[in-house]
Write a protein that binds this DNA or RNA. Sequence first.
DNA 1: TAAATTAATGCAAACGTTTGCAATAATCCA
DNA 2: TGGATTATTGCAAACGTTTGCATTAATTTA
Lengths: 353, 353
Amino acid sequence: MSKRTEKTIVDIAEELQLSVSTVSRALNDHPNISARTKERVKKVAKKIGYRPNALAAGLRNNKSKTIGLIVPRISMFFPATISTIIQNKLQEFGYNLIICQSNDSYDQEVALANTLYSARVDGLVVSTTLYTTDFSHFDIFRNNNIPLVFFDRVPKDYNVKVIKGDDYRGGYVATTHLVEKGCKDIVHISGPLTCCLYSDRVAGYKAALQEHGLTSKKNRIFYQELTRENAWQTCEKIFGHQPYPDGIFASNDTTAITIVEYCRKMNLRVPEDVKIVGYSNDPRTEIVTPPISSIDQYPAMMGERVVAVLMELINGRQSAEPRYSQEIIPIQLIERQSSAGKSKTGKKKLTLS
Amino acid sequence: MSKRTEKTIVDIAEELQLSVSTVSRALNDHPNISARTKERVKKVAKKIGYRPNALAAGLRNNKSKTIGLIVPRISMFFPATISTIIQNKLQEFGYNLIICQSNDSYDQEVALANTLYSARVDGLVVSTTLYTTDFSHFDIFRNNNIPLVFFDRVPKDYNVKVIKGDDYRGGYVATTHLVEKGCKDIVHISGPLTCCLYSDRVAGYKAALQEHGLTSKKNRIFYQELTRENAWQTCEKIFGHQPYPDGIFASNDTTAITIVEYCRKMNLRVPEDVKIVGYSNDPRTEIVTPPISSIDQYPAMMGERVVAVLMELINGRQSAEPRYSQEIIPIQLIERQSSAGKSKTGKKKLTLS
DNA sequence: TAAATTAATGCAAACGTTTGCAATAATCCA
DNA sequence: TGGATTATTGCAAACGTTTGCATTAATTTA
């Protein structure tokens, strides 16, 4: 163990024949310290290469200037984008972000919540696992009044700050769009119902069908983890026998993209034979052929709201704030070729070779 | 400020009429403590909801069980994938990861290095900015023997542990591939030369050309930040006048994808009129039409190596280790339709409507 | 059974800050 | 000029752990 000769404020104090308290205050620009002293202190600090020890300060102040973030995966478009925003926004406020991935495992999520608590984060931001239905591992945060904000995949029946997309509306808008483009038999591929965001979208889907005089049939909704592999298998089920649907609303874009690929392989024409709408407006929907219609969730806005709420909670009069509130971020349908009607781009020929 | 009644080991000690030291040792499974005592301590700890304070422990031990990571952006495929691996691997070793993005800004990188030092991370992993040529902001880490590992975008002439892709070979293989498929006039779109990984690829490109009796012309290489917008503009330059190239080697996949889109719009056939190879094997290359050949960089392997080296450094006999070493992760060309020869899939018809 | 050995526990300092309060120095006002 | 005010600085405790060393308790051995 090589001796790590960390310079401390004590060293500065000695060099200048001052007390540590004045040095501390000088470095923090405390008003009681004379300009001259501040200058001298800072100069010496720089000279000897002093670096504040955030651990010590954190221990003393009972705050770490650090925020924890738990997401299922940072490699998926939506959480990745939000994490980026959160991290950059937080940086502006002088906060560090500890990003952790639960890998959609409940046990990992619990473990992470505990470590982050031990790290004494000043706040926690969470988008839960697909299967988290018990939220008691977040109780420590709630009970100790540590700011706690959930986004996107948020708890049901757990009193906390929540920022979510308008999933009901998303399901409704996507489905209505398909109906208006002429679809009569619309399949919905959903995520597991344990996750409220999917159940909301299903509800929207059903409402839209009903409103337009179509019936929603049980065997036209599929519940699954929305992976590439599952999407492919479900396609095989769907198109394994007649009648084929003329519209598919997929609850994420990975699924929508896979469906398009499947259709291409099977010589099913998109959008002529079957129209497709995805969810999240992943940039990939734009580069695939044909480009896929999708529901944009305004991730930037969501990320900014998360940070805003968090900062309010941290700086604010906590007593005044209700510990529970729900904020809904709007969605928007982005129409692309995969759900176009005949009259428009449907006829366009796109040929290779 | 609501009184946050944190339970400490002192509380446990009092409840059991023990000293704090025994409690501490009991919780850490120190061999000197009797099994009975350990049991009692842990039971009470659980009962009163004790949570260790990592800040205090960190201060005392001079270690935070935390690793810092600085990358340009976590929303780009390659760094995102590696970050995921690193974070998951590190979790296994009981380390937290503070992920920070420099947004490709040198100033932010400097600032982040400083904050992470202040946070007393036990190690730092970095993939630098495109424009970082001065690395002195990492000196604090080097001088204090804090494990420091660079990957992918690594420093030139700065003695540290480095894990990089085989960029020279990547450039060489990509170019050779195009030549072998019959290309005679190959454009290369590169990132800025300040980043050694791009200069290596350029070198590989030139070597391949030369070896096959082709000359590399200055006006056939473009240096730019590899964004969508720049790619489009460069396409306009390239195809603004004859002669058109018959092959393009792009140093990232965003650029390659944009070229494909440009070609489609301009009715240039890929791969018949122009063949394209990208870099990184971003999953997007697979879903675009036609799918794009690319150089796979084995991000998972790179991530694992990063953590392995880091752990060696942390646990290891530092004195024995050379503080400098370079490890090269292999690359592999993934052939897809965008660079296929005539004989193969080139004739395949892909029609919509 | 007493001495010697081993096992278990306790004391107190240390880690590097911050901060309430006390103390001193500088300035002001009449 | 001296008392009052204000501007600076210092003292010492506190934050919650860990750990070397000393101490006490339990066990073994002769």
